[in-house]
Design a protein around this nucleic acid. Structure first.
Lengths: 144, 144
DNA sequence: TAGAAATAGGATAAAACTATCCGAATAATT
DNA sequence: AATTATTCGGATAGTTTTATCCTATTTCTA
């Protein structure tokens, strides 16, 4: 459903959020270890998220990544997905038609619409805070 | 959402079904033209669908592809998707965790489950016949 | 039976995605 | 000021997906 990059991006954001609540910056190394992802590849994704102002990065010794703790609850999953994978997951036609709308629909347009709308709603209504809290409480996990 | 191969596979199946109702076999060339796909690549996908017994292929002059007209209404979208993309779309974890279930869920497990279940239900409850009829009646389209 | 019209299938190429490497830049610490 | 820890960013490599090419095989038709 999502690209590998997007999966890493979401997991990394959750881990960064978790630490930001405790005012701790986390290093690339720590993130990659925690979410079980390749370091250099993860670095690219974090740079991307930083460019999109979803996370903040600080260079140099004692540097790393963090998220404004007061912004965590307002960051939606959709923003992360959008930053990394773009909006094709919402907007694209299920069968790849160049133009697919009510006027000129592909054969699965209506049926797909329901699924995509549910996905869209889910991504837009889920924020980083709730995901981070599930990790903190041990209800959910970031690896294995 | 689906691979390009899967998109072509679905569109090709619809077009073959449409012609099979009129007892017409269609050639690779005609299919690729109709669904606007690369010929040789489409050939591989059709071979795959034939191996999975979803369509029938006939070699030689006057050969081509067809579907048993009495089977069209019982062929589900899920069978086509499954033949080409496998079942990862149903089974895989949204965040790529190796094991992700009620016992050990990823942070988006529950939220994702709803979307995936809806997708699964949609694919399993949609058959080739209804899709083909929408094309026949001019309500839906296979290209542009 | 020869020739033409198709699909089958192996080999290869191109593009996109995933992953790695390394030097440059930056910031804290000593 | 030098050293160290760290992110940034360009270059490169590996893998998967998408696409193409060519020959073999099959089947119909004349």
């Amino acid at each position: 459903m999502f690209s590998k990059a997007c999966e890493y991006g979401i997991k990394a954001s959750i881990f960064i959020a978790l630490n930001s609540y405790e005012n701790k910056r986390v290093s690339l190394k720590a993130i990659a270890k925690e979410i079980n992802s390749p370091e250099a590849f993860t670095a690219k994704i974090l740079q991307d998220l930083a460019r999109h102002n979803i996370i903040n990065s600080t260079k140099g010794a004692h540097g790393g990544f963090e998220i404004d703790k007061y912004a965590i609850s307002s960051i939606k999953l959709s923003q992360i997905v959008n930053a990394i994978d773009g909006d094709s997951i919402y907007k694209g036609c299920g069968l790849g038609l160049h133009t697919c709308d009510e006027e000129h629909p592909c054969p699965v347009h209506d049926k797909f619409k329901a699924v995509r709308d549910e996905l869209k709603h889910m991504l837009e209504s889920t924020n980083l805070e709730e995901l981070a809290l599930d990790i903190k409480s041990g209800v959910a996990f970031l690896k294995t």
